[in-house]
Simulated assay, not measured.
Amino acid sequence: MKNILILVLSLIIGQAANAQNLKADIEALEHKRFAAQVSKDFDFLEKIFADDLVYTHSNAKVDNKVSYIASIKEGKSVYKSVDLQEISVRDYGKIAVVNGRALIELGSTDGKPNILNLRYTVVYAKNGKKGWQVNTWQSTKLL
């Protein structure tokens, strides 16, 4: 009986540690993704975004993977900086849901700073050998 109790406790502790590792991994991916958007690291963006990406901007414009990455390449979406203010990761096995808040400085055409204060939700899915990929982004402007 004692051995069974030790085994069960070990499994529970191991699962809790794995959940913490996953949350740290997803949080690190969020930081890398934002940095890749700013630095225009298209190789990373191609890997991190799932082929079925639905990227809903705070103005309600919707992009897929191809159109979103093209918008960055063509200068339609210019990210000057991203300051991640809050992040919370929930683990659902092969799915992770991220809720966060970020200040995003976009490029400006009129010389004025264009800073978005956003709340957002991101859904990551574990995609076989491709690993964790973003398949959904949804953001809302904060006043």
Rank of each mutant, 00 (worst) to 15 (best):
M1H: 09
M1R: 02
M1I: 02
M1Q: 13
K2L: 13
K2P: 00
N3E: 15
N3M: 13
N3C: 03
I4L: 15
I4K: 12
I4H: 11
I4E: 11
L5S: 07
L5N: 05
L5E: 14
I6Q: 01
I6H: 05
I6V: 14
I6Y: 10
L7F: 12
L7H: 04
L7G: 01
L7V: 11
L7T: 07
V8E: 01
V8H: 05
V8W: 05
L9V: 12
L9R: 08
L9S: 04
S10Y: 00
S10D: 03
S10V: 01
L11I: 10
I12L: 15
I12K: 01
I12E: 02
I12Y: 11
I13H: 02
I13G: 04
I13M: 10
G14W: 02
G14Q: 03
Q15G: 10
Q15V: 11
Q15F: 09
A16E: 01
A16H: 02
A16N: 03
A16V: 10
A16M: 13
A16S: 10
A17C: 06
A17Q: 14
A17R: 00
N18E: 13
A19D: 10
A19N: 10
A19M: 09
Q20I: 06
Q20G: 05
Q20V: 02
Q20N: 10
Q20T: 07
N21C: 11
N21Y: 06
N21P: 00
N21S: 14
N21W: 01
N21G: 02
L22H: 01
L22A: 03
L22D: 05
L22Y: 01
K23Y: 10
K23C: 08
K23E: 12
A24R: 09
A24C: 04
A24E: 15
D25M: 08
D25P: 03
D25C: 07
I26S: 03
I26A: 10
I26C: 06
E27W: 00
E27Y: 14
E27P: 02
E27F: 11
L29Q: 13
L29R: 09
L29K: 15
E30L: 09
E30G: 11
E30S: 13
E30M: 13
H31C: 04
H31E: 13
K32M: 07
K32V: 08
K32P: 00
K32S: 15
